[in-house]
Amino acid sequence: MRLLRAELLKISYQRAIWGLLLGSVLFSALGTGSSPVIIDRFSEQFGGGSLAESLYVDGVYANAVSGYIFAMLVGVLIVAGEFHHGTAVATFVAVPKRSRVLAAKMVAAGIAGLALQACATAAGFLAGYLALLAYPDAASPSIDIFINTSLSSLVSGVVLGILGAAIGALVRSQVPALVGVLLWLFAIEPIVILLLPEASQYSLTGLMTGIISLDLQAEAFNVDLGAYLPPLTATLFLFGYAIVFAIVALISSMRRDID
């Protein structure tokens, strides 16, 4: 327990992590706040749908999940940051049982990811609400969208925090790890989805979308949100990713020397 407390203390002391929290709040708020404008302006591409329909208003609020990338970056910083600053030596000398250190780091990364996504999603909901005030004809959102989006956000926060920490432990070098995560989410996943559309439901973004369970279609944007895995299956898959990466990172860390 004291190891976990120490990891959470480290997180609370680091300005970079507070910066990422602020980034995730702004990113989610901007993404959600700008959605009504996009849906209103590109109504035809959304199959003639408009904000007068509850489904499209739900689509606005679903964007509140979009700060997830920052949860993964926080996870990377929690582990790779130790190697970057040279504090890994002090940490592993103070607590030589590496599996315990890494387990504490991953739990701390999960908690940090959860907290970060909770703040970002709340900010997104607020921004969406304020943006929709400009559209008096907008329908009321469903209650489900708030529950499902919150669930997706919190699950993704935990999972991506752990995944980030696992990647940080595997790569160790901070900049390549951060670049790798960004490439994964913004280049590799979109390319794989483009080439193998049926694989999109197993991608990280696809699984998060699956948890939101929104049946929204926009052929012009090649979007069919109804084609994703059911929420429970998607949640299990996300946790599966986290567990696999965490185990690989643990095994790798036990075998490598600490520099």
Binding site: L3, A6, Y13, Q14, G86, V89, A90, V93, A94
Partner: peptide, 26 residues
């Protein structure tokens, strides 16, 4: 143990760095 002088987070104060270590070691 003292292995090198890089064992501290440069962005944290001396107190904060040591506070983390005392928390780790109880």
């Amino acid at each position: 143990v003292v292995l090198d002088s890089r064992g501290f987070h440069p962005g944290l104060s001396a107190y904060q760095n040591l506070h983390i270590l005392t928390t780790m070691g109880g």
